[in-house]
C-alpha cells in the first residue's frame, strides 16, 4: 500500500506517495521525473540505474525507496550542484558549470548510445571521491570488480570512460 515517503533528492526535499518497497528507480523516474537513471537489468547486474546514496553508489533498481529516507540521493541531474557547493561557486558560475565528470564525459566524447552512461558517471564520481588519482588498473577494477556487478556498456565505450575518468581527475585537482 502506498504511504508517504520524504526523500532528499539532489538537495531538495520531496514527498512522494509510494509503496515503501518500490525500487527507488521507479520513484525517481515516474514520481519525480528524474530520468537520468535508467532501467537496465533490474537485478543489480549492469549499473544503468546507479545513483549516489550519501555519496555511495547504489543500484536504484533494487534499492527500496524507503531505504533512501533520511539519506541524500544524487542523480546525474544533481551532480553540477554538488560540485558548485564543493567549490563554493557563485550562482552565476554554478549555472554554467557542470560537474567535472560530466564535462570530461563531453570532452572525451564518451557516450555512444549513452544508455549506460548515467550509471558510469555516478560510478566515476564515487571512485574519484575515494581515489583522486586512479590508475588505469584502478579504474578498471572499480568499474568491474566492485559489488554487486560490473558496470556494463554494450557499445564498448570502456576506453573512452577510462580517458574521461582520468581527465576528470585532472580537472578536479586543478
Amino acid at each position: 500500500m502506498a504511504s508517504e515517503l520524504t526523500l532528499t533528492v539532489n538537495g531538495a526535499k520531496q514527498v512522494v506517495s509510494s509503496a515503501p518497497e518500490t525500487p527507488l528507480l521507479f520513484v525517481l523516474r515516474n514520481e519525480l521525473k528524474l530520468t537520468g537513471p535508467r532501467l537496465g537489468c533490474g537485478m543489480a547486474q549492469c549499473g544503468a540505474c546507479s545513483v549516489l546514496l550519501d555519496g555511495e553508489e547504489v543500484r536504484s533498481c533494487v534499492t527500496p525507496a524507503s531505504y533512501a529516507v533520511g539519506k541524500k540521493v544524487t542523480t546525474i541531474e544533481g551532480l553540477p550542484a554538488i560540485w558548485a557547493a564543493e567549490k563554493k561557486l557563485s550562482d552565476a558560475d554554478a549555472a554554467r558549470t557542470l560537474h567535472p565528470v560530466q564535462q570530461a564525459w563531453i570532452d572525451e566524447q564518451v557516450p555512444q548510445c549513452g544508455y549506460c552512461q548515467s550509471g558510469m558517471m555516478i560510478a566515476a564520481v564515487e571512485l574519484l571521491a575515494k581515489n583522486a588519482n586512479p590508475t588505469v588498473a584502478q579504474i578498471k577494477d572499480a568499474f568491474t570488480n566492485k559489488a554487486p556487478s560490473p558496470h556494463l556498456c554494450r557499445c564498448g565505450t570502456y576506453a573512452a570512460i577510462i580517458d574521461a575518468v582520468q581527465r576528470a581527475a585532472q580537472s578536479m585537482k586543478g
Binding site: R38, I76, Q102, Q109, P111
Partner: peptide, 21 residues
C-alpha cells in the same frame, strides 16, 4: 566536430523512448 546529442545525454536532458509518458 563534436557529436551533437552528447551534452544532453550527459546532463540528463535527453528524452529517451523510455521517458515518454
Amino acid at each position: 566536430y563534436p557529436v551533437p546529442g552528447i551534452p544532453d545525454k550527459v546532463t540528463g536532458k535527453t528524452q529517451w523512448s523510455c521517458d515518454v509518458t
